[in-house]
Design a protein around this nucleic acid. Structure first.
Lengths: 190, 190
DNA sequence: CAGCCCATGTAACGCGTTACATGATTAG
DNA sequence: CTAATCATGTAACGCGTTACATGGGCTG
């Protein structure tokens, strides 16, 4: 129910479907993934519903683009979505489902391998997001108070991403220590 | 792709579809939601594929139950899923998509209302999970080292849930302060 | 006897994912 | 010349969600 609204949001500035995909991969990857095929289908639907307009445009490279843009009706729908309050309780986190059943594996090496892969993935991601935050900090004198209006809320989204990744990285490290301690015998009560 | 494996996991102990739904709501709600209709459909599919068995059973109350249980083939599939490494990058967090576009609302009161609803929701949830953690702590002497094998990994899942909720609650509180400070004028650099 | 919980399901629709098809331009 | 990137799409399938149907037993 939200890809629709993400499209209405990003298409306040006119863009092609392909451009939307790149934007979502770059700036929304923190909390959303979207497939190109899905984006093209939604653009078609939303245009038929009058929430977007299309215009053809030349491309200096490759085939011609179709440029989409949110209509006032689309804008209205977007504001309605924001006004209905926060949508929560929709999370599906596969790696936690896996962790829940990890005791079924028959040795600690496999479990440690699982957690090391997690740690590797999330700490890389964490580092990447810290770099993006540096760019936000460079944009203003008193971070985050005097960020431009159109960067303030994107920045809040970024900071929760960083905070959660920080928690996740610490958790993965701690879990590895706990598993190792269990493996070597619980007795060590340091 | 993961409801399938959650079913294979929880049906190591025989259960009805209705029981699975209750269990998922109680213990997996931290990172998964599943619809009853969806569960019934998957149970049917997985049984046809030979990953589950069904048996009829009386119910002391209401209609007869169908009791499902994971087969050795289902077990194999489950272990395969765990061995393929952690599945990440599948998150879709609607409230962050909303936050990203929150600047489109035309006043700070509406934005603060949004964040207060978030804060209320997540702090209640956080409290609930802390209570569940107390139960885990009561189950053993040296928490979490000497938790039973079948509680150790579920407990890890619980702790990440708590850590992330803690981060989210702090973030919501901080965001409210930042919005108020912007509203009242950025000048106050206390 | 009304309303809730137990327990199962079907139907319809929409979202998400993968595979496939097409074809232009540019960098190595 | 090959591979990558640009750019658009269709088809098929499976997952997620909502609405609806059925009916017994228990609680107030």
């Amino acid at each position: 129910m939200s890809l629709k609204h993400i499209l209405l949001g990003v298409l306040q500035q006119p863009k092609s479907g392909y451009d939307v995909k790149k934007l979502v991969d770059e700036v929304f990857n923190n909390f959303w993934v979207a497939d190109l095929a899905q984006i093209y289908r939604q653009l078609k639907n939303l245009t038929e519903q009058g929430l977007l307009t299309v215009n053809d445009a030349d491309s200096n490279i490759g085939p011609n683009k179709k440029i989409y843009q949110t209509t006032s009706q689309g804008q209205k729908e977007l504001l309605q979505w924001l006004s209905n309050g926060p949508i929560t309780k929709t999370e599906k986190i596969s790696f936690l489902a896996q962790t829940y059943f990890l005791g079924l594996l028959d040795n600690d090496e496999d479990r440690l391998l699982f957690f090391n892969k997690l740690l590797d993935h999330f700490s890389n991601w964490h580092q990447m997001m810290l770099l993006i935050q540096e760019e936000f900090k460079a944009e203003c004198k008193q971070y985050p108070h005097d960020l431009a209006d159109d960067m303030f809320y994107p920045n809040l989204v970024l900071t929760l991403g960083i905070d959660k990744l920080n928690a996740t990285v610490k958790w993965a490290k701690n879990s590895i220590q706990l598993i190792k301690a269990r493996k070597d015998g619980v007795s060590s009560s340091t």
